[in-house]
Every structure is written in structure tokens, then in C-alpha cells.
């Protein structure tokens, strides 16, 4: 049963992983961080990623339908940059929370499809054991 840090370290073992964080999208607080962050600033990165996650979780175009237990129906968000990917995976908890995993991936070495599948598994394992 992994804790928060173990989960983030596991994400860092993905090929091309540069940094990872667990972030609350209501407050923008990083509950855990490992590796690098753009601009070497995990705090600002978490706050900005939280803004993006909040928009996707709340706006009708993306969040229509909702899910049975109140969590957003959005599973993940992908931002493709010239040299990297940002992968944001919503964590579905059985208690009320608003958190997502954020993985920063180097584009040259990273495998987006693999990372997306693995991050989903990690998000599930984090809360289900």
C-alpha cells in the first residue's frame, strides 16, 4: 500500500519523467512533490496546474454529466508542449476531495500513451491500496 511519496516516486520511474506532484485543485496546494518543476518552482506550477484542472472539472462543456459520487467526470488532461508533456490525472477518492496527479514528461524520452495508463493505475492504487 503506497503512501503519497511512494506514488510520486513510482511516477518518476516512467521514461522521460521530469517531475511529479499531488495537487489540490481547489486551493492550488501541492500535497507532495518530487523531481523538477518548470522554472524550478513546484509551488507556482501547482497553483497554475490547479487553475487548469479546476476549469476542466467545473465547466459544463467538459464536466457535463457528472459522476455518481460527486467527482468530476474528467479523467485526465494532456498539455503538449514543444519539448514536454504535462499530464494531469484526477484522483477519484471515496471521501470528498479535489486532487490530481501532475506528471511532467520530457517529450523526447516520454511515452504519452504509456504514461497515461500508468498514471491512471497509480491514482487508483494511491487511494485503493
Amino acid at each position: 500500500m503506497p503512501g503519497i511519496d511512494e506514488c510520486l516516486l513510482e511516477a518518476m520511474r516512467l521514461p522521460g519523467a521530469r517531475g511529479a506532484a499531488l495537487v489540490d485543485w481547489t486551493s492550488g496546494l501541492a500535497l507532495g512533490t518530487v523531481g523538477e518543476a518548470p522554472g524550478d518552482d513546484h509551488e507556482t506550477t501547482a497553483a497554475e496546474a490547479a487553475e487548469l484542472a479546476r476549469l476542466a472539472a467545473e465547466h459544463g462543456a467538459f464536466a457535463a454529466g457528472g459522476s455518481d459520487h460527486g467527482g468530476p467526470p474528467v479523467e485526465d488532461l494532456i498539455v503538449s508542449n514543444r519539448d514536454s508533456y504535462h499530464l494531469l490525472r484526477f484522483v477519484d477518492t471515496t471521501f470528498d476531495s479535489s486532487v490530481f496527479l501532475h506528471l511532467w514528461l520530457a517529450r523526447a524520452e516520454g511515452n504519452l500513451a504509456l504514461a497515461r495508463i500508468r498514471l491512471g493505475e497509480m491514482a487508483a492504487r494511491l487511494v485503493l491500496g
Partner: peptide
């Protein structure tokens, strides 16, 4: 009784 990750997350949520 609970997975460590879920408990750690909820514990931090409650603490902050």
C-alpha cells in the same frame, strides 16, 4: 483499515 495513500491524503486535507 484504509490504504496508506488515502489515509495520508485525507489526513493532510484535514490538517490544512
Amino acid at each position: 483499515l484504509l490504504p496508506e495513500g488515502a489515509l495520508a491524503l485525507c489526513h493532510l486535507d484535514a490538517l490544512y
